[in-house]
Measured scan of single mutants.
Amino acid sequence: MGFKLLSKLLVYLTASIMAIASPLAFSVDSSGEYPTVSEIPVGEVRLYQIADGVWSHIATQSFDGAVYPSNGLIVRDGDELLLIDTAWGAKNTAALLAEIEKQIGLPVTRAVSTHFHDDRVGGVDVLRAAGVATYASPSTRRLAEVEGNEIPTHSLEGLSSSGDAVRFGPVELFYPGAAHSTDNLIVYVPSASVLYGGCAIYELSRTSAGNVADADLAEWPTSIERIQQHYPEAQFVIPGHGLPGGLDLLKHTTNVVKAHTNRSVVE
């Protein structure tokens, strides 16, 4: 069995187990497998329904001669939608809004960016022009300005110390501490036991640490421990890039980060 097929099978099995364990909360999309990078042309966006009122959005972007996937989250909030992270750029984010209108038909009224990198804030200006209120932590807003990236308009308070959590509509926002970046936030959907790890969490097929220019490698494993301790009931975990899975993604990420750190020390 090929690795790609095995990865998709694991996603399907995880979703099936969740649907059985929580039949009222989960209505997993039966329309197909989780979209992969090879299936999404740059400039297009796919939506994948995880649970009743919960979707991931998947886009792709060219970077350094390669094409990478990027995940975000959409959560229903009454007759409105909360968006977590842009679709990595203005063109993708405009396509995301169009796809949401086509498939869901509810307005996106608020959006949260989970850290300051372009795959999370690139497209904020498109959201703002569409009347979406954009939010991020003060740290993310400051770092985005320093980096020359787009800056969300509103500040999220109460997320300055490791372990801080605040309720934001249908989700809980959690600051686990520094990891992929010093400002990275985690998003949890309690009604569906869905954990969105953003770039602080890796997919299972990833074996290298990737972009760690703004990471705190020493603190990252401790931050992941905080996530595990705060959300032990999480059933569906979405990484910032690639295929979702279960809580095993947290341990896998820790292993990859520690291996990278150990290699760096040896070198």
Rank of each mutant, 00 (worst) to 15 (best):
K4M: 13
L6T: 08
L6P: 08
S7Y: 14
L9S: 13
Y12D: 14
A15C: 14
S16L: 11
I17T: 12
I17V: 12
I20M: 12
I20A: 11
A21C: 15
S22G: 12
S22N: 08
L24S: 14
A25E: 13
A25D: 14
F26H: 11
F26C: 10
S27T: 11
S30Y: 13
S31G: 10
E33L: 08
Y34A: 09
P35C: 07
V37F: 15
S38L: 10
E39Y: 12
I40R: 07
V45L: 04
R46N: 07
R46L: 10
L47Q: 04
L47I: 11
Y48H: 11
Y48N: 15
Q49E: 11
A51S: 10
A51K: 07
W55H: 04
I58N: 05
I58D: 03
A59W: 03
A59P: 04
Q61E: 04
D64P: 06
D64C: 06
G65D: 10
V67S: 15
V67E: 15
Y68P: 03
Y68S: 04
N71K: 04
G72L: 02
R76A: 10
G78V: 09
D79Y: 09
D79N: 11
E80A: 10
E80Q: 12
L81D: 00
L83C: 00
D85S: 00
A87S: 05
W88F: 00
W88E: 00
K91I: 14
K91H: 10
N92E: 02
A95K: 12
A98H: 15
E99S: 14
I100C: 00
I100F: 05
E101H: 14
K102T: 11
K102W: 10
G105F: 03
P107K: 15
V108R: 03
T109S: 13
T109L: 10
R110H: 11
R110L: 08
A111N: 06
H115D: 00
V121I: 08
G123W: 05
V124L: 09
V126E: 07
R128S: 11
A129P: 03
A130C: 06
G131T: 07
A133N: 09
T134D: 03
Y135P: 00
A136S: 09
A136V: 04
T140D: 04
T140S: 07
R141K: 14
L143N: 08
L143A: 09
L143S: 07
E147T: 15
N149H: 14
N149D: 08
N149C: 06
T153S: 11
T153K: 11
H154W: 13
S155G: 12
L156Y: 02
E157W: 11
E157A: 12
G158W: 05
G158R: 08
L159Y: 03
V166C: 05
R167S: 11
F168W: 09
F168V: 05
P170K: 06
P170N: 15
E172N: 02
L173H: 07
F174V: 02
G177Y: 02
G177A: 03
G177S: 06
A179F: 04
H180C: 01
S181A: 06
T182I: 11
N184M: 01
L185E: 01
V187N: 03
V187Y: 00
Y188F: 11
Y188G: 02
Y188N: 05
V189R: 01
P190V: 06
L195P: 05
G198M: 06
C199I: 00
L204T: 09
S205Y: 11
R206P: 06
S208R: 09
A209L: 07
N211L: 05
N211K: 04
D214T: 03
L217T: 09
W220S: 01
E225R: 13
E225C: 06
Q229G: 12
Q229M: 14
Q229R: 13
Y231Q: 00
A234F: 04
Q235M: 09
I238P: 03
P239V: 01
P239H: 01
P239C: 02
P244Y: 08
G245H: 04
G245Q: 04
D248I: 07
L249G: 01
K251E: 10
T253Y: 01
T253H: 02
T254E: 12
V256Y: 06
A259P: 09
A259Y: 09
R263P: 13
V265H: 11
V266C: 03
E267P: 13
